[in-house]
Amino acid sequence: MTAQQIIFIVISAATIVSALIVVTNRNLFHAALALMASFLGVAGLYVLLDAGFFAAAQLLIYIGAISILVIFAIMLTRRLMSASEPSFNSQWVMGLVASVLVFGLFLYVIIQAWGGAVAQTFPVLQAPMEAPGIADSIRALGAALVDPNGYVLPFEVASVLLLGALIGAIVVAQPEKKS
């Protein structure tokens, strides 16, 4: 085993354990903390996959922003200090169906990729490959985002989506107009 594989196994194990804590812990705040740890583990996996930009993006968005939002949402709606919440609510059947479907999808992709194409799908299992010009991969990403032959349309759609999210949030959260 190379050092990289050992690191991969440790990080994945930490990620999975914290993900398990998220669903089993009765204390919502601790569950949110475990969720952050799990996000951090995913960021570590990105680093191992040589995708430093995505690791930083994961940190910035999921730990720096989404987690805050999650904790705010918890504090907005629940009495936290009583600390123990039931693990199930009325939607557990739907949740089960959704997670089984997602798991099946992942399993399908993994099995597809297993035969022959392991190297492309799991660089971690291979000896470290020399990527051509790291600094340029980010430039390539940036240029492709606004390239008419690249992803300019999804890019602008993403902008509209963000605008929609902001407006939606404003409409939902708007305090009663006093006039």
Partner: peptide, 9 residues
Amino acid sequence: LAVSSASVV
């Protein structure tokens, strides 16, 4: 920026 945003937590 990514690391500094984590300090909010």
